[in-house]
């Protein structure tokens, strides 16, 4: 594998977006790019990552390779990333380490790190990324982040309901309750403020607040978030990158007894 990002912060943002959710991950590299999935220790949150060749300045993968890494270690190396530097990932045919080369031609500087790869036994799950959903919402990731931060302070359970009137996020704590209603809008001046809802039926689902606080860490990937909900299935929270691919979080719901 030889894969070069023209801006090293792209890879840093991707890794930082889920490094607190899961401890380790297998990156599966092939001609069609880098794909990964990992489940958190409590098996409630599934992270999926897709980095297609279009995200790279140059991308070459001669034979399919799996790269297992501890995310805490990789995140440490990526602290060196900045918008002036490119980052090339190299893995040899017999992979036992990942080489990261940061280059800042303007500053006549380069940095080289090596990361030991780890053997991770993890099942790949059959996830249909085009899964049909009852409700799809596209909204500002900034707005979503703020709503999650504000409401999750009040309760460890977070409810999402969508009707024709809009999307309602609500919490019911022991001492306080809160509700945020967002209605579809079109901001011609700033398209990232738009909120659109497409739905075939209403939904009303509850999730554990702590996972939503993990998910919003990915908001730096995109100023938009796509939400997909269906009755009694995991919700999908997806951040798509400008050049294709992105990071998705499948969150299993809570159910009422």
């Amino acid at each position: 594998l030889e894969a070069k990002f023209d801006d090293s912060t792209i890879f840093k943002k991707i890794i930082d977006s889920f490094k607190d959710s899961v401890t380790q991950i297998n990156f599966v590299c092939s001609e069609s790019g880098i794909e990964a999935q990992a489940i958190d220790d409590s098996r409630v949150l599934l992270v999926t990552v897709s980095i297609p060749p279009s995200c790279f300045e140059s991308y070459r993968c001669d034979r399919p390779t799996t790269i297992g890494v501890y995310l805490a270690s990789l995140a440490k190396l990526l602290k060196s990333a900045n918008t002036n530097s490119s980052l090339t990932l190299y893995v040899a045919d017999k992979p036992d380490e990942l080489l990261l080369l940061f280059e800042e031609p303007k500053n006549q500087k380069s940095m080289e790190y090596k990361l030991k790869l780890v053997d991770i036994t993890a099942d790949m799950l059959e996830v249909d990324s085009d899964m049909k959903s009852d409700v799809t919402v596209e909204m500002s990731s900034v707005e979503f982040t703020k709503t999650v931060r504000d409401l999750t302070q009040l309760s460890d359970s977070f409810t999402v309901s969508v009707t024709k009137d809009g999307i309602v996020f609500s919490v019911q704590g022991d001492t306080a309750q809160g509700k945020v209603l967002l209605q579809p809008r079109e901001d011609l001046a700033d398209e990232s403020n738009n909120l659109s809802i497409s739905m075939s039926k209403t939904i009303d689902l509850s999730f554990a607040s702590k996972y939503l606080l993990d998910i919003i860490k990915a908001a730096s990937i995109s100023n938009k978030i796509f939400l997909k909900f269906s009755d009694d299935t995991p919700a999908l929270f997806e951040f798509k990158m400008e050049k294709g691919g992105g990071v998705g979080f499948y969150l299993a719901p809570k159910y009422d007894d």
């Binding site: 599934l46 790949m124 359970s157 995991p234």
Partner: peptide
């Protein structure tokens, strides 16, 4: 009282 579902309840291993 709410109960937490697991990802494994919904997705099968490839």
């Amino acid at each position: 009282k709410s109960n937490q579902r697991s990802i494994g309840d919904f997705f099968t291993v490839k």
